[in-house]
Design a protein around this nucleic acid. Structure first.
Lengths: 200, 200
DNA sequence: TGTCACATGTAAGACGTTACATGATTTT
DNA sequence: AAAATCATGTAACGTCTTACATGTGACA
């Protein structure tokens, strides 16, 4: 349901399937991803349903571009979707599933390595969004609250990504710290009385 | 890939498909969901592959239960999965997509209502997790850092859900506040000089 | 000469959702 | 008598991923 409406929304300004894929990668990927093999058939179906129109245009290099644009019916459908109340679907996060069962390995060194690696990945994702924000801020002095409406909504979704990204990195840091603390206290308990006395 | 490994992990203690569905609903749903129509065929396939074994047991009421358990081969597969490095997949969040295109409606009252409704949904999700945590804390004085390893990892995933949930609610609150501030400053600009003078 | 960017597609298979089918027992 | 819970499944459909197929023009 959603991909089709996202394409309609993007096609308020005409574009080819190839263009749309690039736009996904550049700006939308932090909350939705789509491959060309999904985009092309969907555009065809939307055209058949009368929600899009298309025309072929020669390109500078490579085969001709098929440029799609939103029709009136398409705009009606888009608006109807935007009026639906928000609904939250369960996100599926494989690395949380792995962590959930991590005790099976009985190897907290490995668990710690897993969490460190995860922390790195999460931090990288966050850094990408932070670069986007930094760029936007230098390019437009109205950022973030004086932006015109259309850009303001984009900023709200970016803010969501940033907030979530920061929360996740913080969480991973806390996990690492807590695991290390446990490892230390376990070592203490393993050694005989000596260490306890030495600690006073 | 992940559902199959999650089932293997859950079946370290034997259970029926029906039991597993209940366990998803009760504790795992904040990072993975699965319907019975997905669980039953998957259990059959895993048994055919030799990763699970099953036996029929009479039930107190209703039809006989088919109880599955992890085999040695299943445990090997589970461990191999747990040793894979974490990888982050793009989450697909429809309500962020709706927000992204929300300017199309040209109706900031409606956008505000959308965000308020969203805030409510997000707060509810968070409340569920907070109840789980509160319950756990009163039931086990070792919560959270003195828990045994197996429960400690579960707590880490719960902590992830809590942190993310709080970040999302905060974000929604900020969105609402910022939208309201914009609405006020727009009204100010629309009205002629009078309102500005009255504000002193 | 090879690889990259441009450009459009198809096919097979995995994963997920919703609806349907069946039937016993317990609770309201 | 009706509805909820226990319990197992199938079928149809929609979504997503990965791999394959094809060809041009630019650049190294």
């Amino acid at each position: 349901m959603a991909l089709e409406h996202i394409l309609l929304g993007m096609l308020r300004t005409p574009a080819s399937g190839y263009d749309l894929k690039a736009e996904f990668a550049a700006s939308i990927s932090h909350f939705w991803a789509a491959e060309l093999s999904q985009i092309y058939p969907m555009l065809q179906r939307l055209e058949k349903r009368g929600l899009l129109s298309s025309k072929s245009e020669p390109s500078d290099r490579g085969p001709p571009r098929k440029v799609y644009a939103l029709t009136k019916a398409g705009r009606v459908e888009l608006r109807a979707w935007l009026k639906r109340p928000p609904q939250i679907n369960t996100e599926r996060i494989e690395w949380l599933a792995q962590l959930w069962f991590m005790d099976e390995l009985g190897d907290n060194e490995r668990a710690l390595a897993f969490l460190s690696a995860l922390r790195g990945e999460l931090a990288q994702e966050l850094a990408t969004l932070e670069r986007v924000e930094a760029q936007w801020r230098v390019e437009d002095s109205r950022y973030p609250d004086q932006l015109p409406d259309n850009e303001f909504f984009l900023q709200l979704t970016l803010a969501s990504g940033l907030k979530k990204g920061r929360a996740r990195v913080e969480w991973a840091d806390e996990c690492v710290a807590r695991m290390k603390a446990r490892a230390r206290s376990k070592k203490g308990r393993k050694g005989n009385g000596r260490r306890t006395r030495a600690a006073r």
